[in-house]
């Protein structure tokens, strides 16, 4: 299915997010700890989707998004954000982010973001989510 690059400086987030994404039947093909790594990995792996934390050391999520979008204008990036970062989210969306997820990450939020980013896969995502909610 889809190949995902997870970008976050917190290993807890990357772990839980990767687990959820795997549960959705998605491939997490790379994990980056900061913006620089994210840009490198994107160029190397060419994923279908990037989940990008906004506040990260070295190069933050917004700059990384900018870089990735300038490298690949079709890049799909979903921002991971916390409360109070609305303005940064707006910047990100203006820069072409496909959506955002407010922490804490839940399967429901993942589902909604994925459906927005990949409307053509909406049904498949929905059915995966239903299976998930049966498991939990």
């Amino acid at each position: 299915m889809l190949n995902i690059l997870v970008v976050d400086d917190s290993s807890i987030i990357t772990k839980t997010l990767s687990k959820h994404l795997l549960d959705f039947g998605l491939n997490v093909i790379g994990i980056a700890k900061n913006g620089t790594e994210a840009i490198e990995q994107y160029k190397k792996l060419n994923p279908d989707l990037v989940t990008m934390d906004i506040t990260m050391p070295i190069v933050n999520g917004i700059d990384a998004l900018k870089e990735i979008r300038s490298f690949d204008s079709q890049a799909k990036v979903i921002m991971i954000t916390s409360h109070g970062e609305e303005r940064l989210v707006m910047d990100a969306i203006t820069l072409g982010a496909k959506g955002y997820m407010l922490k804490p990450i839940t399967p429901l939020k993942i589902k909604l973001s994925l459906q927005k980013a990949f409307p053509q896969l909406s049904d498949r995502i929905e059915s995966n989510y239903t299976t998930l909610s049966l498991i939990y």
């Binding site: 609305e86 303005r87 989210v89 707006m90 969306i93 203006t94 496909k98 959506g99 955002y100 927005k116």
Partner: peptide, 25 residues
């Protein structure tokens, strides 16, 4: 102010989906 920013940016963006994402903020 946040409200103003969101609305202004929504108007500035032309894409309906993007406006939706803005409005969800």
């Amino acid at each position: 102010e946040l409200f103003r920013d969101v609305i202004e940016r929504s108007i500035a963006s032309l894409d309906k989906d993007t406006i939706d994402i803005f409005l969800s903020l």
